[in-house]
């Protein structure tokens, strides 16, 4: 479980997150939605220990991110909004293996996991391709594969549909849904698109660095969305 306890985060002179409390249960598909600047990406970066709380704590399966930065990070994968910048190597299979090398896996073990991951996402045909020659949808799957190969329990998807066309948008959201259902990966979807909510079970709505709604998505109403600055 991911527990956010009295989280405050200050950047320069402003508090971006103000006393955020949240629990994300295992195997859940949760969408964190809010207008631009509401603090959702800042909150998500705390799950991956990319940011350290100014006040409060983030506990990932009992590990406090302040004390167990790397071990907590192993549990939470992160697919960035600018996924192009996330791909470090030019060849698809090499990029997927990058995280596995960091985990200290042998070449054989890494190759096996790379093959499995390529199968899982049905991208075997681009294993030897140059990343720069791929479409945006394919690049995003490569970024996801790099994260998935490290076998995290939770994956944060930061606005995954932003740079994609309609077909690729529904494709990536279905992939996330599949991973959540079949691989039992807890999916944390960061978005500002209301349509994306239909894939999630629970919704968290953020406004000005605070959570104004946290429940099953069926309880979400127009009033709350309007308050969050989203078109309900």
């Amino acid at each position: 479980m991911i527990q956010v306890k009295n989280l405050w985060f200050k950047y320069e002179n402003d508090f971006i997150l103000k006393n955020v409390n949240l629990e994300i249960k295992e195997n859940n598909f949760i969408a964190i939605i809010g207008a631009n600047g509401s603090g959702k990406t800042t909150l998500a970066k705390h799950f991956n220990s990319l940011l350290t709380p100014t006040k409060g704590n983030i506990i990932i399966d009992g590990l406090n991110t302040k004390k167990n930065e790397v071990n907590a990070r192993k549990k939470v994968g992160f697919v960035f909004q600018n996924f192009e910048d996330q791909i470090i190597h030019s060849i698809v299979e090499e990029d997927i293996a990058f995280g596995l090398e960091n985990l200290g896996l042998s070449d054989n073990q890494a190759s096996k996991i790379v093959r499995e991951t390529l199968d899982k996402l049905r991208i075997n045909h681009i294993a030897k391709s140059n990343v720069n020659m791929l479409s945006m949808g394919q690049k995003q799957l490569v970024a996801l594969a790099g994260v998935l190969a490290m076998k995290p329990k939770y994956i944060v998807f930061d606005e995954p549909t932003t740079n994609l066309d309609v077909r690729n948008k529904s494709n990536i959201l279905n992939v996330i849904k599949d991973l959540n259902k079949n691989e039992e990966i807890t999916a944390i979807l960061i978005t500002n698109v209301l349509d994306d909510l239909m894939y999630a079970e629970n919704a968290v709505v953020m406004k000005n660095g605070q959570i104004i709604f946290d429940d099953v998505k069926s309880k979400l109403n127009k009033k709350i969305l309007k308050k969050a600055g989203l078109n309900g």
């Binding site: 790397v70 960035f80 910048d85 996330q86 470090i88 070449d107």
Partner: peptide, 17 residues
Amino acid sequence: NLSDALQSRLYNENVES
């Protein structure tokens, strides 16, 4: 962004091939 990605994917300069 790249620096965040390297951290996120547990980059370790001491890992040997």
